[in-house]
Write a protein that binds this DNA or RNA. Structure first.
Lengths: 131, 131
DNA sequence: TAAATTCCTACCAGTTTAGTAGGAATACTA
DNA sequence: TAGTATTCCTACTAAACTGGTAGGAATTTA
């Protein structure tokens, strides 16, 4: 997603390119794409001269968006989202902690956008001051 | 650890008791104890009339202490602590995010002590106001 | 000496993670 | 219209991790 952000506005980018720049296999990247498409974060163009582009401007995609899609959740324990997985949920003290922890993780990740990463890459802003 | 905190000051507590109260097996709890002992968070008394007690007052044990011991780490990616696992670490933009994320997780968990959980259990304090 | 309990080491089964593989579908280009 | 480039889909796999179980030795009290 960072590579797509760097390429934003320049038409579709090949997985092959991304794979080279990030030192990953195309086969692996192919695996990550479907959920990103479903979530409408990237847009695919098939066939020759095809490739991928961000579906929104980098400033409109937070790291929370991306990680929720690729990792599925942000909570440290499933009970945060699905109390029914444990019959202690109603009165569990620890669960409150996990809930608070998810909130801070969520807030932190929502505080960064792909544009922040691009800016940092080009040293356009003083990243440290962003947070 | 929460049960031991509730029991703090009343001598050693049996794993059997904890197992009943938390709906876990003794066999499983036995598994968790060694690292807690090594980290000097709990103290064990062997033999009949033995059991476990906290090695410090509940107010002096943070959730960060406990989770570091039981889960081994708090970072979302190993590269945060061991840059050498990936040769992109030196210039990886994403790694900075993982580092920041670990900081907020760490800070959040360090902000709770076992005493907070005990207090919440007895409704002695208004928990919401703690954070 | 018997009972209670921690302690140590080994094992196991299910899930998750990080991939690889084959080939079909699609679209551009000559 | 044929060839090539590329995404797309489904299945497979191997290693690591997680959440346990199991047997029995060591220790302490009564």
């Amino acid at each position: 997603m960072f590579q797509l952000a760097l390429n934003y506005g320049n038409g579709p980018m090949l997985l092959k390119e991304i794979a080279e720049k990030e030192d990953l296999s195309v086969r692996y990247l192919e695996h990550l794409v479907p959920p990103l498409k479903t979530a409408r974060l990237v847009y695919a163009t098939r066939g020759a001269r095809g490739g991928y582009s961000l579906a929104k401007a980098p400033i409109d995609i937070t790291l929370k968006d991306i990680i929720r899609v690729l990792e599925g959740h942000l909570y440290p324990s499933e009970c945060v989202e699905s109390p029914e997985v444990c019959n202690r949920s109603r009165f569990c003290i620890t669960r409150d902690i996990w809930t608070k922890l998810e909130e801070t993780i969520s807030t932190t990740l929502a505080g960064f956008t792909l544009q922040d990463l691009v800016d940092k890459y080009y040293n356009k802003t003083h990243y440290e001051e962003l947070q």
